[in-house]
Amino acid sequence: MNIAVVTDSTSDISKKLAEEKNINIVPLNVHFGLKTYLDGINIDSNTFYKRLLEGDILPTTSAPSVGTFIETYKKLSKTHDAIISIHVSSKTSATYSSALQASKEVDIPIKVIDSGFVSAGLAVVAIKVAEAVQSDKNLDEIASLTKSLISRTDIFFLLETIEYLVKGGRMGKARGLLGTLLKIKPILTFDEGEVNVAEKIRSSKKAIQKMHDLADLNGPYESAAIIYSTDQMEPLRLKSQLELNTSNKNILSLQLGPVVGTYGGPNVLGYAGIRSD
């Protein structure tokens, strides 16, 4: 069975990697005022971060329309027997809803899956699935593999500031951090599809150390990816730590694209890994 893999641009999978792994990426939109850009297509990360940090309007984002998904699915239906479409947490974006609705308008079988994650959490899963469709598995088998991969995925990230997450309304279960007297550097995770606090730390130095501890104490991982937005030094150090605990030494470096960067802001440090069976 020839199964196509679709995900969205919040996976932060680069164009090159997507081509290499045969993954189809549907872009979300990022808006500066009423001006709309397609995530990673007509706005690149470096331009985006410059505008985010230096400009005076805060960007907003929106899910791809149903029509965008229909177009992608229809195009793939000409060359494939089925589609697995894995997306950003439905609790943070309408992308899953759009995809699900579009899947009903296309003639070939399509499984739309809510990963409950974003960025590297979504990427590591999508990449594994793209490898798995190479073997002769049917759509149900691929869908159940996807769900198993999701259940084995960890994601942790440290933001230099939670300002962008707060302004973008994506604090999720971490809302308790708002209005606290003490400044806290929270290590965040995704919990049932929403942002939640994994660890509360007071200083940046300790928080970075804690990220290394998490990469060391969790797992072992079969594959992993690190996340960065502007600074790459700390993420590279984390990558070496993660290598010690991951069987696939080819650990990906993913840069938060414009849509996820709208909420992550500058100097993000994070990783996602799929725990070994």
């Binding site: 939109n29 929106s62 899910a63 329309s65 149903v66 029509g67 965008t68 229909i70 177009e71 309408a94 809803s97 759009s98 609705q101």
Partner: peptide, 17 residues
Amino acid sequence: YDSALLGSRGNSGLILT
């Protein structure tokens, strides 16, 4: 409708569609 399918934005756009 065709235009809304393509041009809708966000959750509210989806429901408006």
